[in-house]
Structure formats: C-alpha cells, structure tokens
Nucleic acid binder design. Structure first.
Length: 280
DNA sequence: CAATAGCCCTGGTGGC
DNA sequence: TGCCACCAGGGCTATT
C-alpha cells in the first residue's frame, strides 16, 4: 500500500531517471484506472518531455509542456523503470496483463504502470487550472512548511470522530495510510479510538511532532514493503523491519513486551499496544 | 457539513 | 493436494 514515503521514494527514483526524457510512444489498457480519457493523453504525450516531477499527498504529477499526467498507485500500483523493456514487443505492448500504461522514451528507457487490483488512478490535465481544481480538497502536506502546529490545531478543531479515521482522511492531512497512521499513533502513545475532541494540548503537540518524523523515517528507509510495494527500480523498502505495531498482531510490543492487538476502527484494521497506547 | 457504510478488485491465505 | 470462501484497504459515492 503505497503511502507518502513510498510515493516519495518512487518520485525520487523517477526524478533521477526520467527527468528531461522525451516520450516516444505509449501504450494504455482498457482498465478502469483511467479517470481521464486515455485517448486524449495518448494523442498529447508523444514528443513531449518530462519537465518536472512532483508529489501531492499520495499522487505523483509528471509535468510536460502540454499537460500534467497524474498517477495514484491505489493499493497495488507500481511504477517500474526498465532499461529497454524485455517484455515489451514493438511498438510497446505488454505481455503482463496487469500493466495498464507504458511510456517509452526516446533514450530507450521505459516506464510501466502495473496494478493488479486496479485501485489506482491515472488522470491527464491539459490545463494547470484542471490540476489545481483536482487537488483543491487535499489536506495539509505533512512534510511541508504549511504543517504548522497552528494549522494542525485548526483542522482538529470541532472534529467529533476518532483519531485513526481522522489521520486517514486525505482532506485533513494528505499522504497517511493505514501503516503510517498506526505507527504514528504508537509513537504518540495514543489509542486509535481516542476521540479527536478528547485530545489534550500535549497530545496535539506530540502528534504534530511524530507525523512528519515517522514519515521521514519511512522515506529514509525507502518505504515499507509489506507485500506489493516496490520502488521504481523494483527494489523493496526497509521500513517493515522498523514497524512497531502494523502487521504485528499477537507479537510482543518492542517497548513493553505486551501483545500487540488488532481491532477495526472506522472499517480499517488498527494495530496497537494496549499497554503503551492508553484506552480513551 | 461531518461521520459512516458499502463498493470496487484480485492475489494470497487458511480451513477442510 | 485441491478447492474456495474470505480478507486486505484507498478513496469514492451514498446515506444518515
């Protein structure tokens, strides 16, 4: 499940490898991952160069002089670089049925979008205004200067739900998913069912500190490979070795030795230590 | 407006 | 060994 650290790791890999590359040809499948008409994108992109790459929450944005290619990896999406596609026959048709987009570059490099579960999404915006409109409801970027304690307090203010669903809501803070949300709550010693309205000022300060800190650690480790995640070069991340609660149900808490529990909160499984994370 | 339930989708898993 | 129901979960839509 690619979350902010995984998307950031992919972004850095792509920046290194396809910045300035010119699209020579492309392939797209009929999968429902395309939330914009892929024909328009397919007509626009050949001949264009990748001018820059950015990330917004869990979205990747590839800018060309003719428009913006926006990609979300969903649950199982992968962006993979190949030197000169072994499984791509001319012009560029995939043998892997899970590959839904291929960008071939003039240099011979190839970028594949692969997504077995098809929860990902690909969009194309010819105008920057369309891009801006698309991201208008996105929340605070947790690793940007806008993630101040004042802004964090402001988005928490008046919320009635539990902290775990709050952290997962992309219109409040963008980029967190189930893994990092659980890890942030463990680091903050907060039970996932704590109501937002019950958070003390100290809780808020602690959360505000650990949200960027845990995400930065994830990026430093190259992301978390729990199952499907691979970086753009096909490699695995390292943060799964450092997880304290996610995926550790029944195992001993690294801090206190008690058994890690798993419960459903807001329809999502939540892993926590009943000893270290106080009951609300 | 805010919170929540249901839906999409397929590979892996566990029970028999 | 084979079969199959079941689960994971990001983000959107519909509902309360």
């Amino acid at each position: 499940m690619p979350e902010l650290p995984e998307v950031e790791t992919i972004l850095r890999g792509l920046r290194k490898n396809i910045s300035g590359e010119q699209v020579s040809c492309l392939f797209f499948s009929a999968a429902r991952v395309f939330h914009s008409d892929p024909e328009i994108m397919a007509r626009a992109l050949p001949g264009q160069s990748i001018l820059s790459l950015q990330r917004r929450g869990k979205y990747l944005i590839l800018r060309t002089s003719i428009g913006f290619l926006v990609i979300h990896l969903g649950m199982t999406g992968q962006l993979l670089l190949e030197k000169r596609g072994r499984n791509i026959g001319p012009p560029c048709k995939p043998s892997d049925p899970h590959v839904h987009l291929i960008l071939c570059f003039s240099s011979g490099k190839v970028l594949l979008y692969r997504d077995p579960r098809k929860f990902g999404r690909i969009l194309f915006f010819a105008e920057e205004s369309g891009l801006t409109q698309f991201f208008i409801r996105m929340g605070l970027e947790p690793l940007s200067d806008s993630f101040t304690i004042e802004n964090f307090r402001r988005i928490l203010n008046g919320k009635k739900g539990k902290i775990k669903p709050f952290l997962l809501n992309q219109s409040y803070i963008c980029g967190l998913g189930n893994i990092y949300a659980d890890e942030i709550l463990f680091a903050s010693s907060l039970h996932p069912e704590t109501t937002v309205s019950a958070l003390t000022e100290n809780d808020k300060i602690t959360l505000h500190r650990f949200i960027p800190e845990i995400l930065a650690k994830g990026i430093h480790s190259g992301g978390t490979t729990f199952r499907d995640y691979r970086n753009s070069e096909g490699g695995e991340g390292g943060f799964q070795e450092l997880l304290n609660v996610y995926g550790r149900e029944g195992l001993e808490c690294r801090k206190c030795g008690n058994r890690i529990k798993r419960i459903q909160v807001g329809g999502r499984s939540s892993h926590y230590c009943p000893e270290c994370q106080r009951v609300p």
